[in-house]
């Protein structure tokens, strides 16, 4: 990976332009909120996606942000990444206070990865039935119903 970087209002993004990656890493919850506030002030006014990655013993929570009004920033799909250790209910701060559009996206991430967003106004299931018992379907240890018979890893 290239080690190019780009600085926007004092925040250094690791970039890989050919792949459309602009990433900034948050060290902990407080740093995350600080970063998000500054990025919002810099013109990132839209939250495109919230998701997580299962890294084995850790989870990386990702917020993808973009801009609707700022022509310079609107070409970027920037991402904020916060790595936390994996447990049944991982707790991270919510960014709905900063980007309201993260509301449903964070609910989905909670349902799929078991990431509890502290301070979210409405932390409930979204897509799966209420009595769905399986824990955190998008984590790597959650199996599919049947194993694909043609496609094996």
């Amino acid at each position: 990976m290239t080690a190019a970087s780009r600085v926007i209002t004092g925040i250094t993004f690791t970039t890989d332009e050919a792949k459309g990656i602009f990433e900034v890493e948050a060290s902990d919850g407080a740093h995350l909120l600080d970063l998000a506030t500054r990025l919002k002030a810099a013109g990132f006014d839209h939250c495109l996606s919230v998701t997580a990655e299962d890294l084995g013993d850790r989870l990386a929570v990702l917020w993808h942000i973009s801009s609707y009004t700022n022509r310079e920033l609107s070409g970027m799909n920037a991402q904020i990444r916060l790595v936390v250790s994996k447990s049944d209910n991982v707790e991270v701060p919510t960014l709905t206070g900063i980007w309201e559009s993260a509301n449903f996206l964070e609910r989905e991430t909670y349902e799929m990865f078991g990431v509890v967003f502290k301070g979210h106004p409405d932390m409930r299931r979204l897509l799966l039935p209420d009595d769905f018992t399986g824990k955190w379907p998008m984590r790597k240890d959650f199996p599919l119903k049947k194993t694909p018979w043609r496609v094996q890893k």
Partner: peptide, 14 residues
């Protein structure tokens, strides 16, 4: 029996 989700019968007959 599927891992995770409840059995279909419960889902359906409710």
């Amino acid at each position: 029996a599927t891992p995770g989700p409840k059995d279909v019968v419960e889902a359906v007959s409710k």
